[in-house]
Amino acid sequence: MLETVIHTENLTKQFGDFTAVDAITFDVYKGEIFGFLGANGAGKTTAMRILCGLLSPTSGEAKVAGFDVYKESEDIKKHIGYMSQKFSLYNNLTVKENIQFFGGIYGIERKRLKEKTNELIERLGLVHEADKLVGSLPLGWKQKISFSTAILHEPRIVFLDEPTGGVDPITRRQFWDMIYEASNRGITVFVTTHYMDEAEYCDRVSIMVDGAIAALNNPSDMKKDFGVKDMNDVFLELARGAKRGE
């Protein structure tokens, strides 16, 4: 039996009259790479924010890493990592300072943090860049560092919000290698993306339309169900029916 790390049931979020997330129900299992797809405005970000403990849902249930999103959001925050579409390191701090800062706010003990920082810098092949300002590095490197710091404290789940936006295909491929590696270590990866080739890399994919989950399956079964060749067609098929625009 697979261990469930995220569980939601009829999770709903309303802003006034507007139902951003409409009774979504799904489970995510340990070590899985879970693709969370949807057009802009479909409710992805809102759902993700609820799961990260940033927003309180209107109704329904959700548990992340075994903690309730209503009452235990502080505990959730300790057990998740997060990387956003916006670049999430400080440009005017060095690589080392950035890693130490993010490790620090997750309460990693100082001596341990030092070891981890050095280990990470070595693993990323950034020994010579360790004391350079992050702002001077190319975007692809920044994204890699960003991802590494997001999982530095060994979270149970890492949330990636369009992590590869604006990155070249080779770096994207390398980035996904890092994601696989994390998933092999048992870290659950919850990722949103607009690249359909990336959707193919996921173990399972859900597609949100108008706040609800329109499809949830592994990519190959999903393609079979819709009788199409690639995920792009699946997505278009579903998104065409959307009522909400941008």
Binding site: S84, K86, N91
Partner: peptide, 13 residues
């Protein structure tokens, strides 16, 4: 503006 606030808010701080 930089988007780092989001990261901080998701952290246990």
């Amino acid at each position: 503006e930089m988007g780092t606030m989001e990261i901080l808010l998701v952290s246990p701080m």
